[in-house]
Design a protein around this nucleic acid. Structure first.
Lengths: 312, 312
DNA sequence: TAAAAATACTCCATAGGTATTTTAT
DNA sequence: ATAAAATACCTATGGAGTATTTTTA
């Protein structure tokens, strides 16, 4: 329950009239500029002065001058009017997605891929949109998306997977490769030759915890189960960098997205275990299904455009 | 000649309606707060949305929610309304002299007298008035007053003198004393004894140029002429400090306002040449006769009040 | 079925127009 | 004599009211 407002202030119209007369110092010309006639303008000014209790013009039937009070008020009135004119434009800019804020999360692996270039291009094209970048793992992103602290995120998951309540746009699909210590027997297999899978199944794994990437985790485990095996987890770690480092320390093998193979570490070699990949993962842009904010939807559209540009 | 304005923006009324609904999220309650009924409020919002081309509320017949656009606009609308409400108050404050600027000039001799205390009190009583202090000689002050760069000034002149086109408020009347080198024969006259006037008339004078203080200059010369003498000007100087320094250097005698005798200089003694003073000068506050600005008139009133305080 | 927004219409306050008067130069 | 503001009076737009319907939780 809130108190009724105090009596409303003069409408913008009155101030527009004031400004016009103040600038023209002539009721007739000011009226013309306001697309009206002189008498109602005279009345409007008189009414404004009465409402304020302040005389704004020193006028006789021949000349019009601003009083000191009028002079002092003119800048404020101009400011008010400028803001009033700016508001509708701002409204349209917000609605059009040209103004706003996008809080964009991304998994670390994507942060070194196309993201930097996209961010740059997007910022150039949408200078009035604040693009906040947040590096986070997929599960944290989803929590943030659900609770509204994040607007959209680049996440990793099994191909085709779409988190509940989210819309998604696949950005890249890559095979999973095997990362292994360079001194591991499997690493001695010639590059063109398929790996000894029987040996792979039995090696301990370094893998992300299930909660951080469930669909990929399940795909890996599903593959093992499909050949009657059960993977032995040597160590869990969230970040791909950490996983690779643990592999380099000899804790076991790891399944990693192909893009991670660009992450050179001494003591680690990456191998594609099959001629035709069997395990895949997908990076996609994810955002809340019911997202309404134009700036966010605009960002999604921007990414879509980057993926399949329409000729101009 | 100026172009006609672009189509006017929504009136404040519309934004006040928007804010009320945005805050209540209920057309009925918002209408009550606006002291109106629900149907015209619904229409008003619809009309604003149409004008903006932006939907502000996500509403069905049961619940009202702000759209993201509405949410983004709310702070701007509040700002606009706050300014609109502030303007009339500001107008009245300006008209009442509580807000504004006073550019106050003063002659150096007065800057060490009552001015500092007055300035302090005035600033305390009128925190929203900017008081700009400008030290200047009387002739420069008058030029500034005439051309509008100065609002009021403390000047020195012969008693009763009022510069043309100015209003004035006498602040202090003082006798002129004689400043003389300490080793001058006249300085040897005992303190209670009148000076040998015949000797005074013949001594060279250090005096301000006529243009800087014409009425006092004329009074001094008038006195000399009235006894059939014509003063011999040894040197002219504008600042009282300089005049006293030149006296100390032995260039001659000087007529100075009594308050200047507080300005101790080695080698200078001040003497009142008569038991009853004959030459007088007056410090007064001077401002343009047709001054309209309330802040300036308020300052004049303040000074008047300081001179003859009315009991509370 | 009940609360609340939308719709339909009615009314009148007032923004704005026309005609005229006043006044300062 | 004239330009320009003020005054008097008129008109009509649209802001606000009342009554009613529609919708959905």
């Amino acid at each position: 329950m809130s108190n009724p407002y105090p009596p409303p202030p003069p409408e913008l119209r009155s101030w527009r009239h004031f400004v016009a007369v103040a600038q023209e110092l002539h009721f007739g010309r000011a009226a013309a500029r306001l697309a009206m006639t002189q008498p109602p303008l005279t009345q409007s000014i008189a009414q404004l002065e009465a409402l304020l209790g302040v005389r704004l013009f020193d006028r006789n039937k021949r000349r019009v001058l601003l009083t000191p009070e009028g002079q002092a008020l003119l800048p404020d009135a101009l400011e008010l009017i400028a803001r009033a004119y700016a508001l509708p434009e701002r409204a349209r800019a917000i609605a059009g997605g040209e103004v706003g804020r996008v809080r964009l999360a991304f998994v670390s692996t994507f942060g070194y891929d196309r993201l930097p270039a996209w961010v740059r291009t997007y910022r150039d094209q949408h200078p009035q949109v604040t693009l906040e970048l947040i590096e986070a793992t997929g599960d944290l992103q989803l929590a943030g998306l659900e609770q509204g602290q994040v607007d959209a995120g680049f996440v990793l998951h099994a191909p085709g997977f779409v988190p509940k309540g989210m819309a998604s746009l696949p950005v890249a699909t890559e095979a999973l490769w095997l990362a292994m210590p360079h001194n591991h027997p499997l690493a001695r297999t010639p590059a063109e030759q398929a790996l000894d899978l029987e040996q792979v199944w039995r090696e301990p794994l370094v893998i992300f915890p299930r909660h951080s990437l469930p669909s990929v985790y399940d795909a890996v485990f599903g593959l093992y189960h499909s050949v009657g095996q059960s993977p032995q987890v040597a160590q869990e770690a969230v970040q791909m960098q950490t996983i690779v480092n643990l592999v380099s320390a000899g804790l076991g093998l790891a399944w990693v997205p192909q893009s991670v193979t660009q992450l050179r570490r001494p003591g680690v070699v990456y191998r594609q275990p099959w001629s035709e990949p069997v395990l895949w993962c997908e990076t996609s842009l994810v955002w809340p299904q019911h997202m309404k904010r134009a700036a966010v939807l605009g960002f999604v559209a921007f990414v879509r455009e980057q993926l399949s540009p329409h000729p101009a």
